[in-house]
Computed example of a mutant assay.
Amino acid sequence: MSFADLGPYLFIVVAGWLATDIWRWAGVLVGNRIDETSEVLNWVRAVATALVAAVIAKMIFFPTGALETSPLWLRLAAVVFGALAFFVGGRFRQIAGIAAAIAFLAAGLAIIGP
């Protein structure tokens, strides 16, 4: 593989880095001036939470790929199980919730089959 063959990949890496890194630096510069209890930051948190909830809902009710083979009741049960693990997870809440939901879904698919 020659350097000319790597050109498009190098462009993608550099362009992707520049596109995201600019916003990261802007966030650092502006973020230092925002009060943690301000209404602006509360709004940003609400929008971020809504986006995550929307993506999760889309994955549950309109799945694609391998998740599409699982029944709706199993996906909903995995979310409930993951939420319970999150609330009792202690220090590792996020990891516990995600791992528990994935394990529940995998076990359910292994039991009922594809």
Rank of each mutant, 00 (worst) to 15 (best):
Leu18Thr: 13
Ala96Thr: 08
Arg24Gln: 02
Glu39Asp: 12
Ile34Ala: 03
Gly31Glu: 05
Gln94Asp: 03
Phe86Gly: 00
Gly7Met: 14
Ile60Thr: 09
Phe11Ala: 15
Leu10Arg: 13
Leu74Lys: 08
Arg45Glu: 08
Ala110Met: 13
Gly82Val: 05
Leu6Asp: 08
Gly16His: 02
Gly7Asp: 12
Ala46Leu: 15
Ala54Thr: 07
Val88Ala: 02
Ala4Met: 14
Phe81Asn: 00
Asn42Pro: 00
Phe61Thr: 04
Tyr9Phe: 09
Trp17His: 02
Phe87Cys: 03
Phe86Leu: 15
Ala103Glu: 07
Leu18Lys: 04
Gln94Pro: 01
Arg45Ala: 10
Val13Ser: 01
Ala106Gln: 07
Arg75Pro: 01
Ala46His: 13
Ser2Met: 04
Ala107Gly: 10
Leu84Met: 14
Pro63Phe: 06
Ser38Met: 05
Val47Leu: 13
Phe62Ser: 13
Arg33Cys: 02
Met1Val: 15
Gly97Asp: 01
Pro8Tyr: 05
Leu72Asp: 06
Arg45Val: 00
Glu39Pro: 05
Val40Arg: 05
Leu29Gly: 10
Ile112Val: 14
Leu105Ser: 03
Arg91Asp: 11
Ala57Val: 11
Ile60Gly: 08
Val55Lys: 09
Trp23Lys: 00
Thr49Gln: 15
Gly90Ile: 07
Trp43Phe: 13
Val47Trp: 09
Leu105Pro: 01
Arg75Trp: 03
Ser2Leu: 06
Ala100Gln: 01
Gly90Ala: 08
Ile60Arg: 09
Ala53Asn: 02
Ala66Cys: 06
Ala66Asp: 14
Val47Lys: 12
Pro114Glu: 03
Ser2Ile: 06
Gly7Tyr: 14
Ile98Asn: 00
Thr69Leu: 10
Ala106Trp: 11
Ala77Asp: 00
Phe104Ala: 14
Trp43Ala: 15
Ala100Phe: 02
Ala110His: 08
Ile56Ala: 14
Ile56Met: 10
Gly27Ser: 01
Ala77His: 01
Phe61His: 07
Ile111Tyr: 12
Gly113Gln: 11
Leu18Cys: 06
Asp21Cys: 11
Thr49Met: 12
Ser70Ile: 03
Leu74Val: 06
Thr37Val: 00
Phe86Ile: 05
Phe104Gly: 01
Ile34Asn: 01
Ala106His: 06
Leu74Gln: 10
Ser70Ala: 15
Gly90Cys: 05
Phe61Ile: 05
Gly89Val: 01
Gly16Ser: 02
Ile34Cys: 05
Ala107Phe: 15
Ala96Gly: 04
Ala48Tyr: 04
Phe61Met: 08
Ile111Met: 10
Pro71Arg: 07
Trp23Ala: 08
Leu41Arg: 12
Gly90Asn: 05
Ala57Met: 11
Arg33Tyr: 06
Pro8Asn: 14
Ile98Gln: 00
Gly97Lys: 01
Gly108Ala: 04
